[in-house]
């Protein structure tokens, strides 16, 4: 477990010693349904934080709001000390907050290598006028390609380098999306269900890639609803239920937390004989 997080109280909204992302009063409602209502959440720098909760708990909505893909109705949040409330997704990405998607968004009719090179930031050749003058960007392009090749090697995708990304298997797409996010040189990666739809053999490899990210100094936050996956690799677990943070703490503590068990199994599971409320 992450050393800085050892002595914290396991309660919702607890302050972290070195938070990278701090959210306050973030609310998002769809019509009458309050999908997210987070009073206070801090995400520790350099740690792996898992965001768990049953389906419909608001995990993905919170992710979308924090990464600029959805707007919040209320609330504000800071990233790396700077206020970034309502900042658009591409600006957040340039600041170092990069996300992946639950349904992978590989760019099918671009090659795997092109997918990677696209993600590098600050490319001179991406500006309309300079793009017409290859001498101005070819050197940078070679550097980017070199970095892309290294990452493809590390994620075991080098053999697919020149294939269309649309030909990759589901698991390979997850790997490509993760590798591509690294091309942005993020300080924090938000992974939306990185293990969803991946065969068990590849799950282990994906998990080790996630811990590698932390070991390189990146902050990782990922959404997952399968508790078992979370236990092994997380430094800290945040559990959401009905849009709110029901509990947070180290994995072992959260697994024992009655609020978490309630969230997953329904509130009245320990009261035999009472009618279960499915509404």
């Amino acid at each position: 477990m992450h050393a800085d997080l050892v002595n914290l109280t396991a309660e919702p909204g607890v302050a972290k010693p070195d938070p990278l992302l701090v959210a306050d009063g973030v609310t998002r409602a769809f019509g009458g349904l309050v999908a997210v209502h987070v009073e206070h959440l801090e995400i520790q720098r350099g740690a792996i934080t898992a965001l768990i909760g049953p389906n419909g708990a608001g995990k993905s909505t919170l992710f979308n709001v924090l990464s600029g893909f959805d707007r919040a109705d209320r609330g504000h949040w800071t990233f790396d000390g700077a206020p970034v409330t309502g900042r658009s997704a591409h600006r957040l990405a340039r600041r170092g907050l990069v996300r992946t998607f639950q349904l992978t968004k590989t760019l099918g009719r671009l090659s795997v290598l092109e997918n990677m090179k696209l993600a590098a930031t600050g490319q001179r050749g991406e500006r309309l006028v300079t793009s017409l003058l290859p001498p101005l960007w070819l050197k940078q392009e070679r550097e980017i390609q070199h970095r892309a090749d290294e990452l493809l090697e590390r994620f075991r995708l080098a053999h697919m380098r020149d294939e269309y990304a649309g030909t990759l298997s589901g698991g390979q797409r997850k790997l490509l999306e993760m590798a591509r996010a690294l091309m942005v040189r993020p300080t924090m990666v938000l992974l939306d269900e990185p293990m969803a739809g991946v065969n068990p053999a590849l799950t282990q490899s994906l998990l080790s890639h996630i811990t590698d990210l932390r070991d390189e100094g990146m902050t990782v936050c990922f959404v997952e609803h399968d508790m078992d996956v979370v236990m092994g690799i997380s430094d800290w677990v945040v559990c959401m239920a009905e849009g709110e943070i029901a509990a947070e703490g180290p994995p072992e503590a959260v697994a024992q937390n009655p609020a978490v068990i309630d969230a997953y199994l329904g509130k009245r599971h320990d009261e035999p004989g009472t009618e279960h409320d499915h509404g």
């Binding site: 997704a89 996300r99 998607f101 760019l107 092109e114 696209l118 793009s131 996010a181 091309m183």
Partner: peptide, 19 residues
């Protein structure tokens, strides 16, 4: 690289935005 971005937009805008 400019063309790479527009071709990527054709495939999936959100992915490009996230990068």
């Amino acid at each position: 690289p400019w063309g790479r971005v527009i071709r990527a937009i054709r495939e999936d805008e959100d992915a490009v935005r996230s990068l």
